[in-house]
């Protein structure tokens, strides 16, 4: 082989390493680690276990996620709502003590976000809840989860499948902001 080809070939191999690495970095989605025991807050001091609350005690979703029928955003229970029970209940648990400490300071836990849609999507909880879509249809059987995880991949196909089935709108701008 000619000399220039050997020299260029080395450079080519090096360049392709870098290119493949960069492309792979974009293509392979980055995922955060899924917590094991209960959904965590950012300090790691408060854990919330849906399997206890929604499972064992069969608390309804709307009991804590109160805005789901009134607002596009379902919301999370305020620290005061949690303390409504936990002022008296399970005070010996470390997670509850962490919550009480935060509430004492006038703060709320910073829950690590599990379910999210891109900024360019408009999703209205109240429209779906009022249309009798069950929470579990999208969020999975949360009452069986210790730590919340996304049970389905919420891509557009997932949404459109249900919309097509139920004759809901498939107009792009119904959801794309």
């Amino acid at each position: 082989m000619p000399a220039w080809f050997i020299f260029r070939r080395r450079a080519l191999v090096l360049a392709s390493f870098v290119v493949v690495a960069v492309v792979a970095g974009f293509v392979i989605p980055t995922r955060g680690a899924a917590p094991e025991q209960g959904t965590l807050d950012s300090t790691g001091t408060v854990t919330f276990d849906h399997a206890i609350h929604a499972g064992e005690y069969a608390m309804p979703c709307l009991g804590c996620h109160v805005y789901a029928t009134q607002s596009p955003s379902a919301g999370l229970p305020s620290a005061r709502r949690c303390m409504g029970c936990h002022k008296f209940v399970a005070k010996e648990k470390a997670g509850v003590q962490g919550l009480a400490a935060l509430f004492e300071k006038g703060e709320s836990p910073h829950w690590l976000r599990v379910t999210h849609l891109p900024d360019f999507i408009y999703f209205s909880h109240r429209m779906h809840v009022r249309s009798k879509v069950a929470c579990a249809d999208c969020h999975g059987e949360v009452k069986d989860m210790h730590a919340v995880r996304m049970a389905v991949t919420m891509n557009m196909g997932f949404c459109l499948g249900c919309h097509a089935e139920r004759n809901a709108t498939v107009d792009c701008v119904a959801c794309h902001k």
């Binding site: 950012s42 607002s71 620290a79 709320s108 690590l112 976000r113």
Partner: peptide, 19 residues
Amino acid sequence: VPRYLVPDTIPSDDTVPGI
């Protein structure tokens, strides 16, 4: 991507998030 969800500590009586 927003990493945290932070609810109110004591919610305001007349404010609904998202409205």
